[in-house]
Amino acid sequence: MKQIPNLFTLLNLVCGCIAIILILQPGESIIATEAGSFQINMPEKLAYASFFIFAAGIIDFLDGFLARLMKASSEMGKQLDSLSDAVTFGVAPAMIMYQLLRMSYLKEESALDTSIWMLLPALLIACCAVWRLAKFNIDERQSISFRGVPTPITGFAVAALPLVIWYNSWNLTDVILNRWVLYSFTVLISYLMVSDLPIMSLKFKDYSFKNNQPKVILLVLAVVLAIVFQWAAIPLIYLTYVVLSLLLRKQIS
């Protein structure tokens, strides 16, 4: 029975591996427009991969919940959780960013001349995610609040991008498939993962509003953003989470 939480952790890993398989064989189509430019049709496999990453996030929550419920927390479970998160919320999002960068270059006439070195910055996400997970395991200051944005939350922000394109939320496809937007976003989220900035934990201390004010504010803003922006709300919620943490740093530390 004590291995049940660990099995859920491995299920998280399986979801991450399936996401990577889907990401690596997207099968996008390129259509020439009358204006002489190129239009990229978002492959459904990339969107499916995003769903698997979000499913893994739910499983990641459940394995921790079950470990506490069954009093089955262990050093083995801690290591399994970090290793699984490294794949699901580090490598898989990095592969998504790699494909999005590739698609951004495919829109140009010189696409075939694009060097792989122009796409490798996407791997910065995986490197910083693993660094963040290792840092969390040895940093005793992160029992109440975090230092740097947690890897799973960063993974969700990246995984949302294919869904924004797939569902054409707010016609943001051209914005997302702009290489400089992708490069900037990659650098920003990678830095925020390995930074020492105080970031609020999303665990509620009790049922009082006073002790959980920052989280309640974030929850309300997240609901409003989700209603207005649909899938495009997820990157916005990510940014709101970071900004709110910095503005209310005294209350979360």
Results as ranks from 00 to 15, higher is better:
residue 156 F to C: 11
residue 58 I to F: 15
residue 129 A to V: 13
residue 49 A to I: 09
residue 237 I to N: 09
residue 2 K to C: 03
residue 47 A to V: 10
residue 170 W to R: 11
residue 14 V to R: 00
residue 175 V to Q: 08
residue 8 F to V: 14
residue 151 T to H: 02
residue 16 G to M: 08
residue 26 P to A: 10
residue 200 M to F: 03
residue 36 G to C: 04
residue 190 S to Y: 02
residue 23 I to N: 06
residue 216 V to Y: 15
residue 35 A to Q: 15
residue 156 F to Q: 08
residue 172 L to P: 01
residue 56 A to G: 15
residue 59 I to A: 13
residue 167 Y to I: 12
residue 16 G to S: 04
residue 126 A to I: 07
residue 208 S to D: 01
residue 121 P to T: 01
residue 142 Q to L: 09
residue 32 A to R: 05
residue 192 L to A: 12
residue 206 D to S: 11
residue 65 F to P: 00
residue 42 M to R: 09
residue 153 I to P: 06
residue 8 F to T: 04
residue 246 L to T: 13
residue 211 N to Q: 07
residue 27 G to I: 02
residue 144 I to Q: 15
residue 192 L to K: 01
residue 164 V to E: 04
residue 74 S to C: 11
residue 94 A to V: 09
residue 196 D to A: 05
residue 217 I to F: 05
residue 131 W to E: 09
residue 24 L to S: 13
residue 90 G to V: 06
residue 107 K to E: 10
residue 66 L to R: 08
residue 209 F to N: 01
residue 164 V to H: 06
residue 235 P to C: 12
residue 108 E to F: 11
residue 98 Y to Q: 10
residue 159 A to R: 03
residue 83 L to N: 10
residue 127 C to E: 00
residue 21 I to R: 04
residue 166 W to L: 09
residue 25 Q to H: 08
residue 203 K to R: 15
residue 81 D to K: 02
residue 252 I to H: 03
residue 155 G to Q: 04
residue 182 L to P: 00
residue 97 M to P: 02
residue 12 N to F: 11
residue 208 S to G: 05
residue 51 F to T: 06
residue 37 S to C: 00
residue 109 E to F: 08
residue 201 S to L: 00
residue 28 E to H: 13
residue 81 D to A: 03
residue 200 M to P: 00
residue 243 V to N: 07
residue 105 Y to D: 02
residue 187 V to W: 07
residue 59 I to Y: 01
residue 246 L to M: 14
residue 131 W to G: 04
residue 26 P to S: 08
residue 16 G to C: 07
residue 58 I to T: 10
residue 241 Y to Q: 12
residue 113 D to S: 14
residue 35 A to I: 06
residue 117 W to Q: 02
residue 145 S to E: 05
residue 74 S to G: 13
residue 87 V to A: 08
residue 122 A to F: 06
residue 246 L to F: 11
residue 42 M to E: 01
residue 205 K to I: 15
residue 96 I to G: 09
residue 220 V to C: 10
residue 156 F to N: 07
residue 14 V to K: 00
residue 64 G to H: 10
residue 217 I to K: 04
residue 101 L to D: 06
residue 200 M to I: 04
residue 91 V to D: 05
residue 78 K to P: 14
residue 12 N to E: 03
residue 221 L to G: 12
residue 61 F to Y: 15
residue 84 S to Q: 02
residue 241 Y to E: 14
residue 108 E to R: 09
residue 131 W to K: 14
residue 19 A to K: 01
residue 236 L to P: 00
residue 108 E to K: 09
residue 239 L to Q: 06
residue 149 V to F: 06
residue 204 F to Q: 00
residue 1 M to R: 12
residue 115 S to N: 14
residue 109 E to V: 10
residue 242 V to A: 11
residue 114 T to N: 06
residue 90 G to F: 04
residue 104 S to L: 05
residue 230 Q to C: 00
residue 140 E to R: 14
residue 80 L to Y: 10
residue 250 K to G: 09
residue 170 W to L: 14
residue 34 E to I: 12
residue 44 E to M: 13
residue 124 L to D: 04
residue 120 L to K: 12
residue 5 P to R: 06
residue 141 R to M: 08
residue 65 F to T: 09
residue 122 A to W: 03
residue 197 L to A: 10
residue 14 V to P: 15
residue 8 F to D: 01
residue 165 I to E: 01
residue 223 V to I: 15
residue 99 Q to I: 06
residue 23 I to E: 12
residue 180 W to L: 10
residue 180 W to G: 00
residue 123 L to H: 05
residue 20 I to Y: 03
residue 94 A to C: 12
residue 150 P to T: 13
residue 14 V to L: 14
residue 64 G to R: 11
residue 4 I to H: 05
residue 247 L to E: 01
residue 69 L to V: 11
